[in-house]
Design a protein around this nucleic acid. Structure first.
Lengths: 144, 144
DNA sequence: CAGCATCCAGAGCGATACTG
DNA sequence: CAGTATCGCTCTGGATGCTG
């Protein structure tokens, strides 16, 4: 399976080519295979968001990321980074040290996405208490 | 299991109470159980994002949503809506028609989140072509 | 240090059938 | 119309051990 196949495999009826051929057509976010859904599939991988956030500040090495992202396993971090590089959200540089060290840095494209995701993080910081409070009320009402 | 349990179950070491007790401490988005992660778990459910986007425009009924969100199953939509209501992102109103009809509407809180998610959608619209192009190059290089 | 390979338990989700 | 209930499969993701 090619990389592009894996990108669109969840949208069997979508047709990316037609989107590129008719750029004037407004993309429908509720259609399968649309840009929004492709991105949501990426964001759905929460490690990607956290990883991008860290790398954005400054380039990082593999184990540094592993340490700083609480709870991520080696497998998931590896998988996430491997996807983000072909996405051109980050770059991967092997440094000729012994033993080898690998540095991950953000690309300009990745930086623009990170900026957008800042908004999400700010919302979380400012409003999550409301959600948690609502859940408490909900639980109390359920138990009564 | 209570609703709050389900919210935090993926962050066994996180402690929401301590976060509320020490609001001065800057929340670490890379710690388990932090607001950002809680929100990411919700956004990870892509149907939630799409559903919120639709309801935000105007209140909708169940089957209307089912029709308009391409590819969603009844089960997933039902599950998504059932979660969003205790989150207080949407309201659920049963109308006394026959047969019964149920209308879902956005709350003020839900509207603020939808606004943030607009940014995500705009990024997707403006930059997904870059990502797809990068994948094409990557595939070609791999096959050569 | 920076990964890859393997195994496998459990969550997620679709499909299907049924209900008030 | 607006769901609930159940089955069964897939696929994610954690744990573990190994490599250049």
């Amino acid at each position: 399976m090619t990389a592009i196949d894996s990108l669109v495999k969840k949208a069997p009826s979508g047709n990316l080519v037609s989107q590129r051929e008719r750029p004037a057509a407004p993309p429908d976010p509720y259609a399968a295979g649309c840009p929004t859904r492709l991105l949501l599939d990426r964001i759905g991988d929460k490690w990607m968001v956290l990883t991008l956030g860290l790398i954005r500040d400054r380039p990082r090495r593999f184990n540094a990321l592993r340490r700083d992202i609480q709870g991520v396993t080696q497998k998931m971090l590896s998988q996430t980074l491997k996807q983000m590089e072909p996405d051109t959200l980050i770059t991967r540089t092997v440094l000729p040290t012994t033993p080898v060290s690998v540095e991950y840095a953000v690309t300009p494209l990745g930086r623009t996405l990170a900026t957008v995701l800042d908004g999400v993080q700010l919302w979380a910081r400012d409003h999550i208490a409301d959600v948690l409070g609502a859940w408490r009320l909900y639980d109390r009402r359920r138990l009564r």
